[in-house]
Design a protein around this nucleic acid. Structure first.
Lengths: 225, 225
DNA sequence: TCAAAAGTGTTTGTGGTACACCCATGG
DNA sequence: CCATGGGTGTACCACAAACACTTTTGA
C-alpha cells in the first residue's frame, strides 16, 4: 500500500449497482462478502481496478467474476471518496450502474459467498458506503426515468402496456392514470405493437416493443425559457 | 509509480472546469502548463490527489494553487479513464465543475505559466483529454440549465432580467422571446426585485436577486407518466 | 356467470407560444 | 430629439389532468 517513495497510495476500485424490477418493485443485486473486511456482510459487486483495463472493463470483469452476469449496459454513476469508507485505508471507488430486465440469472462467484436480489426499500446493513451508493443509483434512476425514456430497460424486449406502467409506478413511487399513461406513451411514438398477445389472468394483452431510435430522440421540455 | 509489491499503480488526479460568462458567451478557465508532459500547452487546472484529502478538497487545493481561485461551489462531473490519456502512465482523473459569476480574478500560480479565459467555442489544442472534459462540462451545463434553475450561478448576486436572459441564450445557443422569458421566470417565483436599478445605456433596469430556497424546489416536468 | 385484467373518449383547465409597441434615460 | 435598451398584454392552441365503463378471456 506504499509507493517506493514512501508516500501512501490511493487505491481505486469499481462497484456496480444492478437494478431490476421484481414483483413490481425495484431490486438491487447484492453479494455476500466472503473475505474481510465486512466478511459475511452484504455488498454490491466490485473490486480493484487493474492498471491495464478501463474502469468500465474493470466493472464488467468484477461483476462477471462475482455474479456471472455479462453483457449489461453499464453507465458511470459517481465516484465515492469518503476518507473512511474503507477500513483498510484510502480507497476511492467509481460506481457504475446497470438497469436490466427482470429475468437475469446470477450466481455466487469468486469472493462472494452468496448472491441475492434485495428490494431497494429494505436494504440490509451493508459493507463500506454501499448503501449510500445504492441510494444514489436509485435516485438517479428516478430522475432519468422522469425526463428520458429509459423505463424500457427494466422490461424484457416485448412487454405489455400494463407492465410498462407498473415499471414506471414502481420506480416513481406513485400511481398513474391508465388512460393518460397509455395515450401519452403511444403518442410519443417510442413503442410499437408486435402484433402478438400475452395470455394471463384476464383479457389477453397486446405486446409492444420499444423503438430505440425514437427513444434516443425524446427530449425533455425545458423548465425555462 | 510502483508499489512495494511490484505491481504498477493507478494514479488519481482531479481536474477542474471553471465556466463563466464573458461578453455574452461561455468561457472556460485554462492554465498554461509549465512542466512536461505537454509543457507550454493549455490545460484545465488539476493535479494529484493526496491520500489525506477528499477529492473535492484536492480539487479546491489544486485550483487555488494554480489560479488563486477560492470559494467556488464545486460539483463532481465525471471520471475520465482512457488508458492513454496521460503519457506518463495510468492516470485516472475525477473532473469537477464550477459555474461562477463573471468578475472572478485569476492569476497564474505554481506549475502554471499563465492563466486565461477561453471561449468554449474556440478551444485551443489542449493537454491530455482536457478538451473532452471541457466539452463534457459544457454539455452537462446545458442539460442542467434546461431542467433546473441554475442560470443564476453565472451572474453576480444582483442582476437584471436582460442579463439573465442573455446568460440563458449564451448557454443554450438560441434566442428567447423577451416577454415569455420574463413572465415565466417571474411566475416561477425564483427571483425577487431588490428595489434597486442599474443605470446603463438606455432606460435603467430593475435589479433582481434569486431566492435560493425557491430555486432548490424547482422540479422539471416529466416526459412521461 | 363471475373474476380479472385490458382497453377505450371526452371535457376542462393550464400553460406555452407568437407577436408589436411604449417608456425612461443619456447624449 | 434621437438612440438605446427596459418594460409590458393578449389571443390561440396544444397538451395535461380528471374521470367510468365496456371487452375479452379462463375458471
Amino acid at each position: 500500500m506504499r509507493n517506493v517513495d514512501g508516500t501512501s497510495a490511493i487505491l481505486l476500485t469499481v462497484d456496480v449497482v444492478i437494478l431490476t424490477l421484481r414483483d413490481s418493485s425495484l431490486h438491487v443485486l447484492l453479494v455476500q462478502r466472503r473475505a474481510p473486511p465486512f466478511a459475511g456482510q452484504w455488498a454490491i459487486p466490485g473490486g480493484l481496478v487493474q492498471s491495464n483495463e478501463s474502469l468500465e472493463e474493470g466493472a464488467r470483469r468484477t461483476l462477471y467474476e462475482r455474479t456471472g452476469i455479462q453483457n449489461v449496459p453499464l453507465e458511470q454513476l459517481h465516484t465515492f471518496d469518503d476518507l473512511d469508507r474503507d477500513p483498510r485505508g484510502r480507497v476511492v471507488t467509481v460506481a457504475y450502474c446497470a438497469v436490466v430486465p427482470a429475468p437475469l440469472a446470477a450466481h455466487a462467484g469468486r469472493n462472494a459467498a452468496d448472491v441475492c436480489w434485495q428490494p431497494v426499500r429494505m436494504l440490509p446493513e451493508m459493507a463500506f458506503d454501499h448503501a449510500k451508493i445504492v441510494q444514489f443509483a436509485v435516485q438517479r434512476l428516478r430522475q432519468k426515468l422522469a425526463h428520458s425514456a429509459i423505463g424500457f430497460q427494466l422490461l424484457p424486449e416485448r412487454f405489455t402496456l400494463s407492465q410498462l406502467q407498473r415499471a414506471y409506478e414502481a420506480v416513481l413511487g406513485e400511481s398513474l392514470d391508465k388512460r393518460n399513461f397509455r395515450r401519452r406513451i403511444l403518442q410519443a411514438g417510442v413503442i410499437e405493437p408486435t402484433g402478438e398477445v400475452l395470455f394471463g389472468d384476464g383479457r389477453p394483452a397486446r405486446l409492444y416493443r420499444c423503438i430505440p431510435s425514437a427513444v434516443a430522440e425524446v427530449k425533455p421540455r425545458r423548465v425555462f425559457p
